[in-house]
Design a protein around this nucleic acid. Structure first.
Length: 692
DNA sequence: GTTTCAGCGTTTTTT
DNA sequence: ACGCTGAAAC
C-alpha cells in the first residue's frame, strides 16, 4: 500500500503531521544545507527518520542518501524507522539507504578506490589494539624503551598519534597541550610515527584513523571526489557535535561536489574532545556550508520538567555555545535525588536496593540504567549485583576485542582473506608449543617469501615453513593450516559460519593449552562463530567486528529471549543517544566529574560538564545521582589509599537546590548536615571506620 | 630460544 | 589486581 493511497495527495501523511512545527520544518526542508540543533530528548531521531522518509517520498532514491551516524546501531534504528514510514515506497523503501559510521563508510569507499590511493584492494584493517602493537614493534626497532624508562607506553603512543592525525595539528602542539609529560620525547616520537606510517604501508594495512584520512584524500582528488559524491544526493550526519576536522573535510568535499548536507547535533553534548572532535564544528557549520538553514529543537519529549531544570542549570554553567533551554512536554514528575553515601560499597548497596524496589513497583530492570564516568566506577556495584543475583549487562568499559583469545581467533579469520597477513601469522604461530618470536620469524620468512596469495600455494609453502618449527608444534600447526586451506580463496564466501567453525576447532587445542581458563574462552569463540555465520563472508565479518565492535560481551552471545530482563550498566559515553525510565548516576564526586586529570584546561572541564549533562538527560522519569563520601584513590591499590570527596563541582548549590538531597543514615557527612555538601571541607579526617 | 616468574607502574572516555 | 617488562631457569 502506498502512502499516497492512504491520504489525499494534497494532505501531509500522518507521520508528518505528528511532528511539531520545528521538527516538521527540518524534515521537509527543501533547499541548501540544513543544520538541526537538537537538544537532548527533542525527537532528533524521529526528525531525522522523518526527513529520510520525506526525501524518499519526494523521489530521492534511497541508495542516493548517505546517513552517517555514530554507531551502526543508530544507523539501523534510523533506517528502520524511516522504512516503517515509507514501507510502500518504490524501490524497496529506506532499506537501501547507505548508513553507518564514518569509519564504515570510509572503509567501503577506500576499498572501492584502493588502487588509486596506492593500496592493494585486499588491504587489512588494524583495530585499536593492533595499532598499539605495531607502534610497539616500531618503538622496539628504534631502540626506545630499553633506555628511557619514562618513554610512553604503546597505548599512550596510539593516543598521541591518533589525536595528532585527527586534529590535524603538529605533533609538538599536541604534546604541549595534551601530553605535556611526553614532550621531552618529541623528536623520537616524530621519527617513530613516520616509521609507523611506512610500516603500515609495507604491511598493507590501514588503521582506523587512516580510513578517514584516505577518504578525505579521495574527496580532495578531483576525479575520485567527484565520482564518490556523484553517488549521493543527500548526506545526513548525526551527532555532528562529535565530528573532528578530518570528518568535516570529508563532508565538505561531498558538498563541494553537489551533495546537500543535513547536520544534526547538540553542542551541549559534545563529549569526544579526546578524539579530537570539537563542538566548534557544529557552531561553525553555517559559515562552512553556504546558505545553511538552521532549525533549533528545544521541546523535550523524554523527561519531566524537574529533571530538565537540573540539566538546564548544569548547562547554564557553561558560557560558550548556543544557549538552549529544554522544556518538558510532559507534565508532573519528581525532583531528582542527590544521594550522599558513606562510601562506594554503601553506594553500590543503595543502588541495588533502589533498583530492586523499582522492579517491585513494576519497572523492568532494562528500563533502568546505571551510568558511570569510567568503566571501573561500577566494579563494586557489579560485585554486589552478582552477589544478589541481579542480572546486568555492561556497555563500554572492557572490550571484546581486547581479550587475547579473541585476537588469536581474529588473526586466524583474517588469514582466510589475506594469506600474506604477516601480523596475523605471527600471532597465530606464537600460540604453538615451544615457538617464540625467533622461530616464528624464520618460519614466516620462508612461508611468505616471494608472496603468498592463493590457497593453492599454501601446502607447498607450508611444507617449507614447518621445518623451522619444533616437532612438538607440528600437529597443531598442520591442523591450522589444513583448516585454512579448506577455507579456500573465497574467504568463506557463502560458508563463513562453517569456515569459522573449522578454524575454531583447529584452534581449540591451542587455546586450551595456552590459557588456564581455556575452556571458558572457547565459549567466546563459539559465540563468534555464531555471528560469523550471519555475515556474507569472513572479510566482511572481520571488518564489521573491527569497525563496530560489540558494545558488551553479551552482544556476542545468543540473542536473548524477550522475557530476559537485566539492568544496564554503561559509561556515559556509551549511553549517548539512549534513554531509560530510571537513571542512576554513580560516583558523582569531584575528581570523577570532572575526572581529576581533566582538570587542566577550562575546555576539558567544560567537556566533563557536558558529560554529566549527557548523563542527566538520559532519564525519562526518575533520576538519582550518588556521591560517595569516601572513595578509593587507587581503585586497585593495596595501600588502602582513599580520599574524602565532595560532590562534583557541577552540582553547585543552585543545582542541589533543585534536587531532593538525601544523606543516608550512616553517611558520616550527615551529622554535619548544617554544612552544605558543596561547601564541605575537601579533606576530612575520620576514624569512624575503626568502629563499624 | 622459550617459558616462567618477580617486580613495576598504573591518567578516562571510543570509532 | 592486572598487564607489561626484564631477567633467570629450562
Amino acid at each position: 500500500m502506498f502512502v499516497s493511497d492512504v491520504a489525499p495527495a494534497e494532505a501531509a501523511p500522518a507521520w508528518l503531521q505528528e511532528l511539531n512545527p520545528e521538527q516538521h520544518a527540518a524534515a521537509v526542508h527543501d533547499g541548501a544545507h540544513l543544520l538541526v540543533l537538537a537538544g537532548a530528548g527533542t525527537g532528533k531521531t524521529t526528525t531525522l527518520a522523518a526527513r529520510v522518509a520525506w526525501l524518499i517520498e519526494q523521489g530521492v532514491a534511497a541508495q542516493r542518501i548517505l546517513l552517517l551516524t555514530f554507531t551502526r546501531r543508530a544507523a539501523r534504528e534510523m533506517v528502520g524507522r524511516a522504512g516503517a514510514l515509507t514501507r510502500a515506497a518504490p524501490g524497496g523503501g529506506a532499506r537501501r539507504v547507505v548508513g553507518g559510521t564514518f569509519h564504515a563508510a570510509a572503509h567501503r569507499l577506500v576499498r572501492a578506490h584502493a588502487t588509486s590511493v596506492g593500496l592493494a584492494p585486499d588491504f587489512g584493517l588494524l583495530d585499536a589494539g593492533d595499532t598499539a602493537d605495531v607502534l610497539d614493534l616500531v618503538r622496539q626497532e628504534q631502540g626506545h624503551g630499553d633506555t628511557g624508562r619514562r618513554f610512553p607506553r604503546k597505548h599512550t603512543l596510539a593516543d598521541i598519534y591518533s589525536r595528532t592525525v585527527n586534529a590535524q595539528r603538529p605533533l609538538r602542539d599536541v604534546l604541549t597541550e595534551d601530553f605535556p609529560w611526553c614532550e621531552e620525547h618529541a623528536d623520537a616520537l616524530a621519527g617513530l610515527f613516520r616509521a609507523f606510517g611506512a610500516r603500515k604501508r609495507a604491511l598493507g594495512v590501514l588503521d582506523l584513523d587512516d580510513l578517514l584520512v584516505f577518504w578525505r584524500a579521495l574527496m580532495r582528488d578531483e576525479r575520485a571526489g567527484r565520482h564518490i559524491a556523484s553517488g549521493f544526493d543527500h548526506v545526513l550526519v548525526d551527532e555532528y557535535q562529535d565530528v573532528n576536522g578530518v570528518q568535516v573535510d570529508v563532508v565538505a568535499g561531498l558538498a563541494a561536489h553537489g551533495c546537500t548536507v543535513t547536520a544534526v547535533g547538540d553542542d551541549f553534548q559534545a563529549i569526544y574532545g579526546f578524539r579530537s572532535a570539537s563542538a566548534r564544528h557544529i557552531l561553525d557549520f553555517p559559515q562552512r556550508f553556504a546558505d545553511t538553514t538552521t532549525v533549533t529543537l528545544e521541546r523535550n519529549y523524554r523527561a519531566t520538567q524537574p529533571l530538565l531544570d537540573v540539566a538546564n542549570a548544569v548547562a547554564a554553567q557553561d558560557d560558550e555555545g548556543f544557549p538552549k533551554v529544554l522544556r518538558a512536554q510532559r507534565d508532573g514528575g519528581q525532583r531528582p535525588a542527590l544521594v550522599f553515601c558513606r562510601d562506594q560499597a554503601h553506594e553500590a548497596a543503595e543502588i541495588c536496593d533502589r533498583v530492586l524496589a523499582a522492579r517491585e513497583q513494576g519497572m523492568l530492570l532494562r528500563e533502568q540504567a546505571v551510568l558511570a564516568r569510567t568503566g571501573h566506577d561500577t566494579d563494586l556495584l557489579e560485585l554486589e549485583l552478582s552477589r544478589r543475583r541481579i542480572p546486568f549487562v555492561k556497555y563500554g568499559g572492557l572490550r571484546y576485542l581486547e581479550a587475547a583469545h579473541v585476537k588469536d581467533f581474529l588473526a586466524l579469520l583474517r588469514l582466510t582473506d589475506r594469506l600474506a597477513d604477516e601480523l596475523s601469522w605471527f600471532r597465530v604461530l606464537l600460540l604453538l608449543e615451544a615457538v617464540g618470536p625467533s622461530r616464528a620469524r624464520r618460519a614466516l620468512d620462508r612461508l611468505l617469501a616471494g608472496g603468498l596469495t592463493t590457497a593453492a600455494q599454501l601446502p607447498a609453502r607450508w611444507a617449507q615453513a614447518r621445518e623451522e618449527l619444533p616437532a612438538s608444534a607440528h600437529e597443531a600447526a598442520d591442523a591450522l593450516v589444513a583448516a585454512l586451506a579448506a577455507c579456500g580463496d573465497d574467504g568463506g564466501r557463502g560458508a563463513a559460519g562453517a569456515c569459522a567453525e573449522r578454524l575454531r576447532d583447529a584452534l581449540a587445542p591451542l587455546v586450551r593449552a595456552h590459557y588456564a581458563d581455556g575452556a571458558v574462552r572457547m565459549q567466546d569463540l563459539d559465540a563468534m562463530c555464531g555471528l560469523a555465520g550471519e555475515a556474507r563472508d569472513l572479510r566482511t565479518f572481520v571488518a564489521e567486528l573491527i569497525l563496530d565492535p560489540p558494545a558488551s560481551s553479551s552482544d556476542m552471545a545468543v540473542p536473548p529471549h524477550l522475557d530476559d530482563d537485566w539492568l544496564v550498566l554503561s559509561t556515559v559515553h556509551s549511553a549517548k543517544g539512549l534513554e531509560w525510565q530510571s537513571v542512576h548516576v554513580i560516583a558523582a564526586y569531584d575528581g570523577n566529574f570532572p575526572a581529576c586529570m581533566a582538570a587542566g584546561t577550562s575546555e576539558s572541564i567544560a567537556e566533563e560538564r557536558r558529560l554529566l549533562y549527557v548523563a542527566l538527560t538520559r532519564a525519562r522519569r526518575a533520576l538519582s545521582v550518588y556521591v560517595p563520601r569516601r572513595y578509593y584513590h587507587r581503585p586497585n591499590g593495596r595501600d588502602d589509599g582513599h580520599g574524602y570527596g565532595k560532590a562534583s563541582r557541577f552540582l553547585a548549590p543552585d543545582v542541589q537546590a533543585l534536587c531532593d538531597v538525601e544523606h543516608l543514615a550512616d553517611d558520616p557527612g550527615a551529622p554535619g548536615a548544617a554544612v552544605a555538601p558543596a561547601d564541605a571541607p575537601r579533606i576530612t579526617v575520620s576514624v569512624d571506620d575503626l568502629f563499624v
